[in-house]
Simulated assay, not measured.
Amino acid sequence: MGAALPHVFGVEKSCLLKEALEKASPVPRGREDIKRLLKLHKDRFRSDLQWILFCADLPSLIQEGPQCGLVALWMAGTLLAPPSGTPLESLVQVAKERGYTAQGEMFSVADMGKLAQEVLPCQAELLSGGLGGPNRHRVLQHLVTGHPLLIPYDEDFNHEPCQRKGHKAHWAVSAGVLLGVQSVPSHGYTEDPELAGLFYPVPSVPCQLSCLPEEDSPGAVYLLSKQGKSWHYQLWDYDQVRESNLQLTDFSPSRAADGREYVVPAGGVQAGLCGQALLLRPQDASH
């Protein structure tokens, strides 16, 4: 299958977006997008490691307004109910009817999980206590299996995770992982013909999870992530994502003063987002 143009929700309302979309090149599929990043930023990645890429292809959707969480859920839904997924309009409508959102914002991982299970054919597991410790292995296993992960974090100017105490709270979906290992198992993996040291699992061979990097191995795990302000994948250092997710405590003062309505759960941003993520699986998948 060839690369497809990204989806843009509400594009008919924006001549500028429409013009940009029509002039844009097709968005590369996941594996090619990651290879582009590895070539472009090769100095970021440890040269003493070999790399294994587990990657599921996600479509792109440019958000309109504060709908980053619902856009991330829509992208994840295409893996849970392919090929077309559930329309974003349906997610927005049900979220408003249930009182989870006023204009598309989602400040509760628990509400996001309830919405996912109602609208998408999926299982939703709320992960609390952060992405480190015992949760780390669960998250990596989940991604290696090919299932999506929804993560709230603080968004920096380049869309990467940062630490702003929740003032830049944003959502992303991860649909794969790049693992740095000392050596790749000889059976079940194939090397990229263009990039030496980059390997892919052979689809018909069960994955050997013993190769997962340990938690005390910095710079060895990168999440393949997409969010609603870019058409491309990004590779985010796992520890950077974990730290950003753990410090979501405050509602943005600029949002509080903008005169708009937002639905924030009891206990605020800290109760709704801090240290939490959402593991999504198809309805018939086993843990």
Rank of each mutant, 00 (worst) to 15 (best):
L91C: 08
Q117V: 08
H7P: 06
L79Y: 07
G113L: 02
D154R: 06
V27T: 09
W74K: 00
L131V: 11
S204G: 02
L37C: 10
S225M: 12
L212Q: 05
Q234V: 11
D239W: 05
G219E: 04
C207D: 03
S174Y: 08
G65E: 00
L246S: 13
E12K: 11
R260E: 13
E243C: 10
Y200R: 07
N135L: 06
G2D: 15
A81R: 12
Q208R: 14
H142N: 04
S210F: 01
L149S: 01
H167D: 02
V71D: 02
F45S: 09
K96Y: 11
G69P: 01
R36N: 12
K114I: 03
V184N: 08
G104I: 03
Q227I: 09
L131D: 12
A3T: 12
R138A: 07
E261P: 01
N245G: 03
S14M: 04
G176W: 01
G259H: 09
L179K: 01
L212C: 11
P265A: 02
L88Y: 13
Q208S: 14
G133V: 06
P213W: 07
G197W: 05
L120V: 04
M106H: 03
G10Y: 07
L198C: 07
P28K: 13
E125D: 14
D111N: 15
M112Q: 04
E243L: 15
P213T: 13
G146L: 09
H41E: 13
S183K: 13
S204R: 06
S128L: 11
V177E: 07
Q283M: 14
E19K: 12
R138S: 08
L195K: 09
P206N: 09
H170I: 11
P82V: 05
G113Q: 03
A266W: 05
E243Y: 03
V177D: 07
A20E: 11
P28G: 10
S210K: 09
H142I: 08
D33Y: 02
V181G: 10
V8K: 02
A3R: 10
S14K: 09
E97A: 14
V109F: 09
S128C: 15
F251K: 00
D111T: 06
V27E: 04
L150D: 03
A3S: 15
D111H: 13
L143C: 10
C55H: 10
F251G: 01
Q117R: 12
V184L: 11
G10L: 08
H137R: 14
E194Q: 12
Q50H: 10
L127G: 05
A220K: 00
D156Y: 15
C15I: 15
M106R: 05
D258Q: 12
E215V: 11
F157Y: 15
L79G: 02
R255G: 06
E32V: 06
P121G: 03
